[in-house]
Write a protein that binds this DNA or RNA. Structure first.
Lengths: 185, 185
DNA sequence: CGGTAGTCGTTTACTGGTAAAACACCTGTT
DNA sequence: AACAGGTGTTTTACCAGTAAACGACTACCG
């Protein structure tokens, strides 16, 4: 949306208005112009994109304080939560980004002393990356703050609704991850 | 993640597995390492980011066939659904992007003959942008296909659940749009 | 052995976005 | 009238990401 990223097929609408969120306003506009179309999908996909963009834009205060981008934290987090070394390729798969992006990030994180690399003894093409003590401490220090921040961001939604939302998103994501390839046409 | 956006604070996990979506697997890893932390927020924010990234990556087949990026379609769509001319500034607000990005897109879309500009007679700083007939026809031709595609993407989720999901996302988005500024700290 | 195919990681060339400066213009004040 | 300050748009400089080419290496197979 960016995440860039940006908007969505439903676009956006700067006016808040009493009638709900901005996506609702956009959908109303579309329905006025094309009353025959089923705008249902917009209300889900548009909102997901818009939420992701807003969350991205809010750029997680705890991360910023540590001078980390979300992508960098993702990489460190993958190392921390798996608990063992990972190769650059594994890190790329784990963080859903290209190998080239991982190479760049590793370079910076190594310079900052947060990760270390070591060459594989058997296969000299591959490298193994691990957290330094400083990297590990940084992740462990940030994570609680980050979760508290995310919790605050979500606090406008009642806890039971949060549970429902998480479950429904889980269903959707499971479907997307399983079956999206088939749709690429 | 730009959208683009890439991953999320919860990162990702390449393994699907029987136990649910990839975010669920990541959350399980975190809980094994830090059993004391409340990982609830990850299950929402992580999934939203991941869904947005996947939807982005799937890069909407109907749009691609028309040679449009999602951002370009958003811009055209804003003109179509409002039904009147918009200034570049209004377009930026409407599509949630920077003015500079709008300038670039307008240049390309003008070259392709999809939009036209005219200067304001009173205030010579401002421009008014409108769809050409070709632009309008293009949007009207793509939109049904795009909605059908999105509908297919969501088809793995039962219609009643889709309704719930849309409603819950509406609540969250309304909260985010209203109150996110306060959190920027 | 020797060559071919495949894999891992990096480099390169490019894209599409942003922030901030620059530019052109309006508006209110003196 | 002249100027200060504000606004709308474009330009500039830059950044982070990708895809594709590349180099180094392994592994297979005759």
């Amino acid at each position: 949306m960016t995440a860039s990223d940006g908007g969505s097929a439903t676009g956006g609408d700067a006016r808040g208005g009493a009638g709900g969120d901005t996506v609702a306003a956009v959908v109303r506009q579309w329905r006025a112009v094309h009353p025959d179309l089923d705008t249902g999908p917009m209300e889900i996909i548009g909102r997901i994109n818009r939420c992701a963009a807003l969350l991205q834009q809010a750029e997680d205060a705890p991360l910023r304080r540590a001078g980390l981008s979300r992508a960098e934290f993702d990489l460190l987090g993958a190392l921390r939560r798996t608990g063992h070394e990972l190769t650059p390729g594994e890190l790329a798969r784990e963080t859903f980004s290209s190998g080239a992006a991982v190479t760049k990030r590793l370079k910076q994180l190594t310079e900052r002393g947060l990760v270390e690399r070591r060459g594989d003894t058997r296969d000299r093409r591959v490298a193994h990356v691990r957290l330094t003590d400083a990297g590990r401490d940084l992740v462990d220090g940030i994570l609680p703050d980050q979760l508290a921040y995310e919790s605050a961001v979500l606090s406008g939604v009642e806890p039971p609704a949060q549970g429902e939302l998480a479950a429904l998103l889980g269903v959707l994501l499971g479907q997307l991850e399983g079956r999206l390839d088939a749709l690429r046409i």
